[in-house]
């Protein structure tokens, strides 16, 4: 996701479109990216650090983006 302070023109366009379709109570929209990673391990604790490193080094640009990690079974 783009950080809150960063202008998100795609989010704004989606918001306007939703409003014009009758969803008047939509106040703002922020959009982002979902990346699914399939790991060769079953221990999510062990991999958490690794995934954080992937996020910091490659998957996000820390200046403009923030991220959340969620483990699925």
């Amino acid at each position: 996701m783009l950080r809150d302070a960063i202008l998100d023109p795609q989010g704004n366009t989606i918001k306007k479109s939703l409003n014009s379709l009758g969803f008047k109570n939509v106040k703002s929209v922020r959009q982002g990216k979902l990346i699914e990673i399939d790991l060769n391990t079953s221990s999510s604790n062990k991999e958490k650090k690794n995934i954080e490193k992937m996020c910091e080094d490659v998957l996000t640009n820390s200046l403009t983006e923030k991220y959340k990690i969620k483990f699925l079974k």
């Binding site: 783009l2 960063i6 202008l7 023109p9 795609q10 366009t13 640009n61 200046l63 403009t64």
Partner: peptide
């Protein structure tokens, strides 16, 4: 900028 050799970042144009 992605390799941090220059500061800042380049984002999608305001008008998309």
């Amino acid at each position: 900028t992605e390799s941090k050799m220059l500061p800042g970042s380049l984002l999608q144009n305001e008008n998309l």
